[in-house]
Design a protein around this nucleic acid. Structure first.
Ligand code: FES
Ligand code: FES
Lengths: 148, 148
DNA sequence: GGTATTCCTATGGGAGTGCTAGGAATATAC
DNA sequence: GTATATTCCTAGCACTCCCATAGGAATACC
């Protein structure tokens, strides 16, 4: 249960790769952006598949892309300022265990649906964990000390 | 993301239904077990589909079934002693964001994979929430006060 | 025997996942 | 301005899983 798609897994690994290489917007001009092909090779990911994933992250504002020769991708912000919740939501959509979580569709119970509260709590628990971790934390292998 | 299947949603609603009616093993003999058809009608769930779900819950030891006329299902234990983690795992399998969570397959990183720690933390967060809630909590619409 | 129930197996449409392929748009290099 | 290297866009396909439906076998009561 709760399988995370390869799309998200690859996306995170690519972001970690970029953060490691220090490829952030505003660096020295001589430091070229990493290309999709290079990341794919280094991480053993299907190149064309990864292209699409990086495009998504660019649209979401997490990456900055440069086209043409010597083009590639850079992080739009330093790793510390990127929460894992942002990343996951950009690739996987909102965390939504059940559909009735935002739209109050009544499920036979007529509005006072008990399970709904339970699922809502689950969403908050997941959101809480994800937003408490930044890309930098993942990068540095932060052990999950506190549960805050 | 993190969609919970209808199988699990229906299963939980059925369990809540049974708990509400107070149909626990060891009650008065006159109190008949609830049939799958009755629950399906009351909860507006496809009858044959629900049958399979209740069978799963029986195999998992959460329900006790009686076949033949006047048969049906009862809770195997009082709601207080049934954790939501048990229920979810019975229907949905283990919480496993990524496959490498138990088997230490190296993903190009050669063993020191950073993202893996992150996913492990997510699993622990979800497991923590689910095991902290009992069926009785859901039944009573326990608001999620503490995050413990 | 008749009836009501759980239990088992098979089937099928639909949606989503995980890629693959081809090319268009864009920017540099010579 | 032609060649080259890159991102970007769209389409398609095999595969799996989800959700349900259907038919009947096994079981237990009357
Ligand atoms: S309203 Fe969603 S489970 Fe009841
Ligand atoms: S070992 Fe699973 S993501 Fe690296």
């Amino acid at each position: 249960m709760f399988n995370v798609s390869t799309k998200t897994q690859y996306g995170i690994r690519a972001l970690v790769h970029l953060a490691r290489a220090g490829e952030v917007v505003g660096h020295v001009q001589g430091n070229p952006a990493a290309t999709a092909a290079a990341i794919a090779r280094s991480e053993s990911i299907s190149p064309k598949y990864l292209e699409g994933i990086l495009s998504l992250l660019t649209t979401a504002g997490l990456l900055v892309s440069e086209r043409g020769k010597h083009g590639g991708y850079r992080l739009a912000r330093p790793p510390r300022e990127v929460s894992m919740l942002e990343i996951v939501e950009a690739l996987e959509g909102e965390i939504k265990p059940v559909d009735c979580i935002d739209s109050r569709e009544v499920c036979a119970q007529g509005g006072s649906c008990l399970p709904r509260l339970f699922w809502l709590g689950l969403k908050e628990s997941v959101d809480g964990y994800l937003s408490s971790r930044s890309l930098k934390d993942v990068l540095e292998g932060e052990a999950d000390d506190g549960r805050a």
